[in-house]
């Protein structure tokens, strides 16, 4: 944990629950998380502990039922919907746990989507999407549909899409979950590379080897952060 530098993520007392009254299920119960710009954080925890829920809130996709969340100093919860879209588009790359590729589009087109909404001209879009796919080792699968890809290939497409528009913050929900150890290592190396470029990275994982890769490890249990430690020196 570096003490110097600018605060990028500032989530305080974040609560999230589903349902009301009797059926109310508490998923996050007062999470506090501060992340400096340029940090690399791994989040671990049991299945159902609320990791994905937390990442959705940090990625401006979901809203906490209670608590505050500031991203880069801005109170994103008070922003207009269009403005939040803009934040998602410009500042966040999100790798979903279930990939979330559009089945009607080819791999290349899927990766182009963020650039499309950023208004990048067609030709540049193609070039950048192609480069991103090559970076994850999928340069040979450009015209395949998601359904024609293996699970690992879909996962790498999703990573390419999260990186294609060079977002300063990368949020990845189990980016190596479907990869064999070799490919997983390659992806981790890629994430290291991106981290080295100065980007902030939060990734969720079950794999302790992957978790140890990150300088900071956050452990969630039953919707609360139970451990927040620097792994440097372990």
């Amino acid at each position: 944990m570096s003490d110097s530098g600018e605060l990028l993520i500032e989530a305080r007392d974040v609560h999230r629950w589903y349902g009301e009254g009797e059926a109310r299920v508490e998923v996050l119960r007062g999470v506090d998380l501060l992340v400096q710009r340029g940090e690399y954080v791994a989040i671990v925890g049991a299945s159902g502990s609320g990791k994905s829920t937390l990442l959705s809130i940090l990625g401006c996709l979901d809203r906490p039922g209670q608590g505050t969340y500031r991203l880069g100093g801005r109170d994103v919860l008070s922003l207009r919907d269009d403005h939040i879209s803009e934040v998602r588009l410009r500042e966040i790359g999100f790798v979903f746990q279930s990939f979330q590729l559009i089945p009607q589009l080819s791999t290349l087109e899927n990766v182009e989507v963020p650039l499309f909404y950023a208004g990048v001209p067609r030709r540049e879009r193609h070039a950048r999407a192609k480069a991103a796919l090559e970076r994850v080792g999928l340069g040979h699968r450009l015209s395949h549909r998601p359904t024609q890809l293996s699970g690992g290939e879909q996962q790498r497409s999703a990573i390419a899409r999260a990186l294609v528009h060079d977002p300063p913050l990368l949020l990845a929900d189990e980016p190596t979950g479907n990869l064999d150890s070799e490919t997983g290592k390659a992806i981790l190396a890629l994430i290291d590379e991106i981290h080295a470029e100065g980007r902030t990275i939060l990734l969720i994982t079950h794999d302790l080897a992957v978790a140890k890769h990150a300088p900071r490890l956050v452990t969630i249990k039953d919707g609360e952060i139970v451990l927040d430690q620097s792994t440097r020196g372990i």
Partner: peptide, 13 residues
């Protein structure tokens, strides 16, 4: 789902 993906990635309303 497609709409959700587009919106999640940054498409405005």
């Amino acid at each position: 789902r497609e709409i959700g993906i587009r919106r999640a990635i940054g498409a405005k309303r």
